[in-house]
Design a protein around this nucleic acid. Structure first.
Lengths: 335, 335
DNA sequence: CACCGTGATGTAAACGATTACTGTATACGA
DNA sequence: TCGTATACAGTAATCGTTTACATCACGGTG
């Protein structure tokens, strides 16, 4: 590997001059400049990132700690973060597939000194404790973590409102026996969506036996299983609200297999509005979440923090990405 | 930020000892060890990545240079690379949204010293020149770049064979007037798929007026546009082969809008088998590519190279990821 | 002609780790 | 008692940059 010293020797100047030319950080005689550039190009020199960030303590990189997410949602988040980062002149260091506090901290250690800030997405509730152990003043944005007033910027989805809108839609269509396929208990999104489901039904005066809950884990498979179970129940619900689209898709497969018509016999509503939703048959009624806004927002907040030169204490904001009901075919018409 | 020196001072030992404890690189008295660990934890110390990789010249990170790809394909590639990297104990530094030689080189410069190796995906044909300018011996794997015997490991999709299979399928169904919606000319995948299309028709003795080509750019939108154009043609084709699924989806939209039935009036075949394909209505006949195998393979090859301690000259291999026809509803039955 | 500001360059000290080398105490055998 | 092997721990060089400071030549000024 050719270093700045090699270029300096070859060009017959000092390393300082090379650095100045490469960074344009100070005046260098035009003639020298050109010569240095020549030599550098000829030798194929490019500055060593690690060395540079060691001295400047800037990496021009942001890190993202993500759980291993289900399909399209995950991808879309990564992509939007990457886009926003790229746009701001930053690279993206990725670390996915971890749940739980310990793994987040391990990943954080591995990223220390390699990133200028971190986006942490961990719907599982214990992420907060992990983040608390980060050094003070380290730029962090929490994605989809319940962050309340804890001193971090955070971005959350309007899960509760979205779920209520979905359930209210079913109620308006005349459904009185509605099942929900939930996500995992410890998952923040799942918990909020469940809360919305319960509250909406409660307000409508629907009692426990009209509001059945089946547990899933956000995978298509689990939606399928839950629905099979549900089909065996004594009093079959007339509508299913799945905590995400993948499970809704699984549910529809199970229904179709059992010869149950969607939406005539059973209405189905999902959550997320993944791209596939509108291409399904019937097209899936779901709650639209602007996933890429999520990533973009998080990245922008993070870059703000990074650029803020530690200007004392900043108030931390929580931003909410709206979730809006999209009515398509799978919920049917008024019964 | 607390450094190794702070810990050393606080613990009353030298920095060497701290390093030894943290890395377990040499014997340290158990008592000292525990004490150091205590202090380190109390101070919240974690080693500085850049400093570490400066001296060890290892980063435990691989880089990926990707074009801004269309939808699900891109996402799936990233995810599989990330998974494989994570599995091998590596992080992933991402840099997307660049086409062309210049941008690849810029990105490479930015990554120099931050990664131990690079996966370069650039279907656009000029990527090779860029890669050539990388320093000798720098671990690189080319993804979907035509790499022939040029001294790089590379992974490619069996585009040609896949396209032939798709077209032959249409021929067997009795179609004699087949249109292809192509990708951009300079795109390697697109070019190969087009070649397969042409050869298959040629072999079947179909002449130019039975083999029409419309140009697209891999977006749904372009598939839609091309199909509108096609519908206006004098002799309408009875089948459409789109160079990827997104365009096939666009094509189906256009057909449906025009009241043309799929597959009864016009058969449609795509390429890629993105997750959505099987959920469409009718389900899309397409050429399945195991995208995640693509990423996994590339990552594994790269890690091999990295771990190979520069054991002299290694022969470079090109691996081909198979592309297999999946017949679903959109191609219909024999006419 | 002495002085000094200025512009271009060089020198060397960081940055935060790792590690070869050097030391020092202790144990053990002769 | 001495020599020496062993087990720990410290010193300092090193990685490739950036940058404060020093140096130096030159030209203008009084």
């Amino acid at each position: 590997m050719v270093t700045i010293k090699d270029v300096a020797r070859e060009a017959g100047v000092s390393v300082a001059t090379i650095s100045r030319v490469v960074n344009g950080s100070a005046a260098v005689k035009e003639e020298t400049r050109r010569h240095v550039l020549d030599v550098a190009a000829r030798l194929g020199y490019s500055p060593h990132g690690a060395a540079r960030s060691l001295i400047t303590s800037r990496t021009n990189t942001i890190g993202a700690l993500l759980p291993d997410l289900h399909g399209e949602f995950f991808s879309e988040v990564i992509r939007s973060i990457d886009h926003a980062a790229h746009h701001g002149g930053y690279h993206l260091l990725l670390s996915s597939s971890h749940d739980g506090e310990r793994e987040i901290m391990t990943s954080f250690r591995a990223m220390r000194g390699r990133v200028d800030g971190l986006i942490v997405m961990s719907p599982d509730l214990d992420a907060r404790t992990a983040v608390h152990s980060f050094p003070d003043g380290f730029p962090v944005v929490l994605l989809n973590c319940p962050a309340e007033r804890e001193g971090y910027d955070s971005i959350v989805i309007a899960n509760y409102d979205g779920a209520r809108a979905a359930v209210n839609h079913l109620l308006e269509l005349g459904h009185r026996r509605i099942a929900m396929i939930t996500g995992r208990e410890r998952n923040h999104d799942a918990a909020e969506r469940l809360r919305g489901f319960r509250d909406a039904l409660l307000e409508a005066g629907i009692t426990a036996d009209g509001a059945v809950e089946y547990s899933g884990d956000f995978t298509e498979e689990s939606g399928y299983r839950a629905t099979r179970e549900l089909l065996g129940a004594r009093e079959r619900p007339t509508a299913i609200f799945a905590a995400n689209d993948s499970m809704a898709i699984g549910a529809i497969s199970a229904l179709r297999e059992a010869g149950v018509r969607v939406p005539e016999d059973v209405a189905v509503v999902g959550f997320d509005d993944i791209p596939m939703a509108r291409y399904m048959n019937p097209p899936l009624t779901t709650v639209h979440v602007d996933i890429s806004a999520l990533g973009t927002l998080a990245t922008d907040r993070l870059l703000e923090q990074i650029h803020e030169e530690t200007t004392g204490v900043r108030e931390h904001r929580q931003e909410v990405v709206p979730a809006t009901l999209i009515v398509r075919g799978s919920s049917g018409s008024r019964r």
